[in-house]
């Protein structure tokens, strides 16, 4: 329509008195600043909602008791703890012996478990509460795949873990070999031996203050 053609071009408005400009600048800065602060505050509930239903303050004591009476030497059992696969193995004397063989320990990155990947009561040559029973969280410290367990065979009586994703190798106590990408030993969860046939995962008698969240890497 013709009205558009009639539309005048906008003109710069009336001159601004000099003193007014200065004061308005302060005021507009304050308003823009307050507006931005308000927008940030508004973003808070939206971003906070991305945390979902996680309630870290209350802490979750996830305890599971596992019956290992049917676990035979050389075998391992996989249970789920906090959504992670946990390997429970009953070690044979040959497996235990392999853990202390110098030609093997030389090839390990952290043979003495110096890096915090286990509760204090598992900082020992067998990385467990009792030598015969090993408990490991089965998540490769490289990029999170689940290592597969090679059961002891006549050729290799020590047993070991190898990660299918990028070839990281761990000995049967979850200690990582040097010539592979994974940087740390497999994590050991807090474990209490309730009896010879029952293991409690989630609570460590020898290190009661241990929190799995504090380890180097899961």
């Amino acid at each position: 329509m013709t009205q558009d053609a009639d539309r005048p071009t906008p003109l710069p408005s009336c001159p601004v008195p000099g003193g007014g400009t200065r004061r308005r600048d302060v005021l507009s800065t304050v308003i823009v600043g307050a507006g931005c602060a308000g927008a940030c505050a508004l973003a808070y509930p939206f971003l906070d909602s991305l945390n979902g239903t996680k309630n870290t303050e209350l802490g979750e004591d996830d305890l599971i008791d596992v019956d290992i009476s049917t676990l035979r030497p050389g075998q391992q059992l996989v249970v789920t703890w906090r959504g992670w696969p946990v390997f429970i193995q009953r070690r044979t004397p040959e497996m235990l012996a392999s853990l202390r063989m110098v030609d093997i320990t030389q090839r390990l990155r952290d043979p003495d478990s110096k890096i915090l990947q286990q509760p204090r009561d598992a900082v020992n040559w067998h990385r467990s509460v009792v030598p015969e029973i090993g408990v490991l969280i089965g998540i490769c410290t490289h990029l999170g795949c689940v290592p597969s367990y090679a059961t002891p065979s006549p050729n290799d009586r020590s047993g070991k873990y190898s990660c299918p994703c990028h070839g990281s190798q761990f000995d049967v106590a979850g200690r990582v070999f040097k010539d592979a990408p994974a940087p740390y030993n497999l994590p050991v969860p807090p474990v209490t031996m309730l009896s010879a046939t029952h293991v409690r995962i989630g609570q460590s008698k020898g290190d009661p203050d241990f929190s799995i969240a504090s380890i180097q890497q899961i």
Binding site: M1, Q3, D4, D6, R7, P8, T9, P10, L11, P12, S13
Partner: peptide
């Protein structure tokens, strides 16, 4: 933005005095 806003009088602004940025 093609027609511009209407206003309470309903008559189109004609001069520069009628509008503000």
């Amino acid at each position: 933005h093609v027609t511009g806003s209407n206003n309470p009088t309903g008559i189109e602004p004609k001069t520069a005095e009628d509008v503000v940025p």
